[in-house]
Structure formats: structure tokens, C-alpha cells
Simulated assay, not measured.
Amino acid sequence: MTGTLISLISIFTGIIAANLFGHFIKKYSFGFTGNTLVGVFGSIFLIKSFGRLGIDPRSIMNDGNFDGFLLAINLGVSVIGGIVGMIVVKLIKNKMN
């Protein structure tokens, strides 16, 4: 796996998490397109924030040696980023109304 593929899998995981969260908790849903956009940006923001702690794709590959534990942490943070993004965007939307 390359760093780019790991990044794409991580973003895709955030998209899936945001859409599932919006599907099961209708209060936070913005439709498929809105959930997808929030999932992308939420997962990217959180992965970039926590990437400095060693869960970025470069650290996962570690000179050609794959680290599955770091990948699992990366995907978990991406899921959390998608869900937190949905909650934050809903709070912002409520404040604007």
C-alpha cells in the first residue's frame, strides 16, 4: 500500500461514517451529498490534526514496512472525524438560524 492509497481509504472511511451517522440519527442528516462533504472535510481535518502524533500515511508505511495497528488507529480517527464533523456542522447551522 502506498501513502496515497492509505489517505484515500481513510477519507472513504470518514465518508461512510458520516453517511451512516446521518442515516441512523436523522437529526444530524444533511442528505447524501451534504453528509459526504462533511465526512470528507471532517476526516481530513482530524487526520491532519492527529497526523503529527505518528498516524499519518508515511508513518504507517515506515520505509516499506506496513504497520496495521497504526492503520487501524488512522481509520478510527477518520471515523471520529466524520461523526464530529456532522455534529459541528449541525451546531453551526442551528446557530445561524
Rank of each mutant, 00 (worst) to 15 (best):
S78R: 10
F41C: 12
G68W: 10
L71I: 02
I92N: 09
V89M: 14
I83V: 15
D63P: 00
G81P: 05
F32A: 04
N65V: 13
A17K: 00
F50M: 13
G42M: 10
N35D: 13
D56P: 04
G34W: 03
V79Q: 05
Y28V: 08
L5P: 00
V38P: 11
G54R: 09
S7W: 07
K48E: 12
M96T: 14
I83E: 03
D56R: 13
S78A: 15
F24S: 02
F21C: 09
A72L: 15
N62K: 09
N65C: 11
A72H: 01
I16N: 02
S43R: 06
F69C: 07
H23C: 08
G31W: 00
I15N: 03
V88N: 02
F50V: 04
D56V: 03
K27T: 09
A18V: 03
S7I: 01
L75V: 10
G76P: 03
M61Y: 05
F41S: 11
R58K: 12
K93C: 11
R58C: 02
L46I: 10
F32N: 06
T36R: 09
N97Y: 06
V88W: 09
S10N: 07
G76L: 11
F24V: 10
G51M: 12
G3P: 04
S7V: 00
Y28L: 09
G42V: 06
G34P: 12
N65D: 08
G54M: 07
I80C: 12
S78L: 09
N62M: 05
Y28R: 07
L75Q: 07
G34H: 08
F50Y: 15
F69V: 13
I92Q: 07
I9G: 08
K95V: 07
G34Y: 06
G22D: 01
L71F: 07
G76V: 09
M1H: 06
I47H: 15
L8G: 04
L71K: 03
G14R: 01
I25R: 13
S78T: 05
G81N: 02
N74S: 10
I83P: 11
V38E: 05
T33C: 11
S10W: 00
G82M: 01
I87R: 08
I25A: 09
I11R: 05
S10T: 12
G68N: 13
N94M: 12
N35R: 07
I60K: 02
T33S: 14
F30G: 14
M86T: 00
I6R: 00
G68T: 11
L5E: 12
H23F: 13
K95G: 07
I47Q: 15
K48I: 09
A72R: 04
F21N: 07
L75P: 00
N19C: 14
G3A: 03
M61F: 04
G85F: 00
S43D: 06
V88S: 10
G14N: 04
S78V: 06
D67F: 13
M61K: 11
P57I: 03
T33D: 10
N35E: 05
R58Y: 08
A17P: 10
T36Q: 02
I15A: 04
I6Q: 02
I15E: 06
I9L: 15
M86N: 03
R58I: 13
V88D: 06
N74M: 06
L91H: 05
I16T: 10
I47N: 15
N74I: 01
V77C: 09
